[in-house]
Design a protein around this nucleic acid. Structure first.
Lengths: 128, 128
DNA sequence: CAGTAATTCATACTTTTGGGTGAGGCGCGG
DNA sequence: CCGCGCCTCACCCAAAAGTATGAATTACTG
């Protein structure tokens, strides 16, 4: 009895149900893509152009304190208040990777904490 | 026996010992005071510029987001990259107190992390 | 004077960060 | 080809940060 009832219910809602699911999935994807695009600039460089580092420009070091591209991305996201996990998600890498980047960052900036890194990086005009 | 021994020891070292102690205490105090004074300026600026303009003016809230004097001090020190422990030492209160202040701060700024708080506070022009 | 806000502190617990180390893959320059 | 820097990731351990709750004190206000 109940099975029949349930089946009937599912059948009667099948069209709207699947349409709803599909709409939801695409909406989520759209939001996702939009969200990612708002963060693009540095990320596109990191994601698509990372294999073409510094086309004959080695002297830029003077301003970056030896901070690599990836490290600077992390630095910017830290400055925006994101957690390591959130940064990892944004950059499609693992949490451990972000930890490594931030650790190297702290070495290069000679600081011990992320808040300190942000403060210092701002002093050094590395970030706005 | 032991009491006598101890007494003798103290007596024999009394002059240099006490002079050393006193010198040490004062040196420590001097360093300490000097250290605190170097941080005074920015702190007082931050405090006085934003906090005092409320003599019988409850509507100024629109600018401070209900952030109290102490909370703003903590906020400024967080923005400078200090740890909670360092802030506690600077303000002569316990670590727990700073945690409480920062927690309340995060509620008022609607954030979850200190880096986020700094970012947000800057957006809101609460801190430079 | 009762009520409220601010400040202080504690205890206990969870999450986030940071430190140290090792390691594999990739591109570039000698 | 080899080394180097960069990026990636893992594991472990320790410290710092954050959450939740309760509470005492002071001070101002209606």
């Amino acid at each position: 009895m109940q099975l029949v009832n349930y089946y009937y219910l599912v059948r009667s809602f099948t069209i709207e149900f699947y349409l709803g699911i599909i709409a939801l999935v695409f909406a989520t994807m759209g939001i996702w893509v939009g969200w990612r695009l708002t963060e693009r600039k540095s990320m596109e460089v990191g994601l698509h152009l990372k294999q073409f580092p510094t086309p004959t420009l080695p002297e830029i070091d003077s301003g970056t304190y030896g901070i690599s591209k990836r490290e600077e991305e992390v630095l910017l996201l830290i400055a925006k208040g994101f957690s390591n996990q959130e940064i990892a998600d944004k950059l499609f890498v693992s949490l451990n990777t972000i930890k490594t980047h931030s650790a190297n960052l702290f070495l290069k900036l000679d600081v011990k904490r992320r808040t300190q890194a942000v403060h210092r990086a701002r002093e050094l005009k590395i970030i706005p």
